[in-house]
C-alpha cells in the first residue's frame, strides 16, 4: 500500500501535479484552475476544520457558515501562493512587489552584522526569502519545517538544489541542537536567519504566549538565538495582494535584551512579536496558512 502514500495530503503526487500545472497552464486559465482546486481543497477535512477553528478566535462572533466561506478564501490564497512559489523556482518569474515599512526594509538591507527575520506562515514566505536573497545579495539562511513524507521531502530538496539562489540556504529544523549551533555561527558571521515564529513543530523548544486571547506555544529558537548572538529581530510578513502581486511588510526591529531574569526577557520579546503577529493576522486572516488550531483550547 506504500504507493498510496503519494496521494495522501502530504504526498508527493500533489507537488508533482502543482509543478505540472505551473508549467502547463496558460495565464487565462489560471483563475479557472485555481477556483476548481480551492474548492477541492475544502474536502481536506482536517485542514478546513483547523482554519475554521482559528477563525473563531481571530474573528470573535463569526458563524460556522461564514467561516466555511472564509476557509475557502484562505485555500484560494494558498493555492495561488504555492503556485507562485513553484513558478518562481522553475521559471524565475517574479511577482510584483510593494512595501510597507520600507525604512525598516532598507535598514535590514544595509544592516551590517547578523539579524533574525521573524516571519509567519503568511503569503509566500519562501518566495519572499528568495526575492530578498536575489536583490540584497546578502546571505540568508532560511529555517523551515521538514516535509513529513520522505518522497515529498526528496522532491522538495531536489527542487531547491536545482533552483535556489546562491545566497539562499535552507535548513530544516529536525536536528534541534546541531541546527542551533549552525544558526548561531551564521548570525555571528553576519548572515540573516529567517525563521517562522507562528507555529511549533514537535520536538522543538517552546515559549508560552497568548494569541487572540488564547494560550499558545511559540518556538523559543528565534528569541534564544537573538539573545545569545545579540542581534535584532525584524518582523517581516509577505502578504498576497492579488494575482502575482505581493506586499512585503517589515515591522520595527526589536531586541531580546539580556537581563538577570531570562524568562522575563523572553516574555517581553514574545509579547512584542505576538502584538505584531496579531495586528497583521487580524487584517489579513485570509493569508494565514495555519491549518491546525493554534491553541489547544480551540482543538477541543
Amino acid at each position: 500500500m506504500s504507493w498510496f502514500r503519494r496521494f495522501l495530503v502530504h504526498g508527493v503526487f500533489w507537488r508533482q501535479l502543482l509543478r505540472f500545472g505551473v508549467l502547463n497552464a496558460p495565464l487565462w486559465t489560471e483563475p479557472i484552475v485555481m477556483a476548481i482546486w480551492s474548492t477541492l481543497f475544502l474536502l481536506w477535512g482536517a485542514g478546513r476544520r483547523g482554519v475554521m477553528s482559528n477563525l473563531t478566535a481571530i474573528l470573535p462572533g463569526s458563524t460556522p457558515l461564514a467561516n466555511l466561506f472564509r476557509a475557502w478564501r484562505v485555500l484560494w490564497n494558498f493555492a495561488w501562493t504555492i503556485a507562485d512559489n513553484v513558478r518562481y523556482k522553475e521559471t524565475r518569474v517574479t511577482p510584483d512587489w510593494d512595501f510597507v515599512g520600507i525604512e525598516h526594509f532598507e535598514q535590514l538591507e544595509s544592516h551590517h552584522g547578523g539579524a533574525i527575520i521573524l516571519t509567519a506562515h503568511m503569503g509566500s514566505y519562501d518566495l519572499g526569502a528568495h526575492l530578498f536573497a536575489e536583490i540584497s545579495k546578502r546571505q540568508i539562511v532560511m529555517v523551515r519545517a521538514p516535509e513529513t513524507d520522505p518522497e515529498t521531502r526528496q522532491f522538495e530538496e531536489e527542487l531547491h538544489e536545482r533552483t535556489a539562489a546562491d545566497t539562499l540556504q535552507v535548513d530544516f529544523n529536525t536536528r534541534a541542537s546541531e541546527l542551533a549551533l549552525d544558526l548561531l555561527g551564521a548570525v555571528q558571521r553576519g548572515e540573516l536567519v529567517a525563521i517562522q515564529g507562528d507555529r511549533v513543530t514537535p520536538g522543538i523548544s517552546t515559549l508560552p504566549a497568548t494569541l487572540f486571547g488564547k494560550p499558545t506555544l511559540l518556538p523559543a529558537g528565534p528569541f534564544a538565538l537573538a539573545m545569545a548572538a545579540r542581534v535584532p529581530i525584524y518582523p517581516l510578513f509577505i502578504i498576497r495582494m492579488g494575482r502575482r502581486r505581493y506586499r512585503l511588510v517589515v515591522g520595527k526591529p526589536f531586541e531580546v535584551v539580556r537581563a538577570r531574569d531570562r524568562a522575563e526577557a523572553f516574555q517581553r520579546a514574545v509579547d512584542e512579536w505576538t502584538r505584531e503577529l496579531e495586528s497583521v493576522i487580524r487584517k489579513m486572516w485570509f493569508q494565514w496558512f495555519n491549518f491546525e488550531p493554534f491553541s489547544q483550547e480551540l482543538g477541543r
Binding site: P26, L27, T91, V93, T94, P95, D96, W97, D98, F99, I102, L131, I135, R244
Partner: peptide, 9 residues
C-alpha cells in the same frame, strides 16, 4: 517603492 516582474503573463 515597487518591484515589477517582467513576464508576458
Amino acid at each position: 517603492d515597487v518591484i515589477l516582474g517582467i513576464d508576458r503573463h
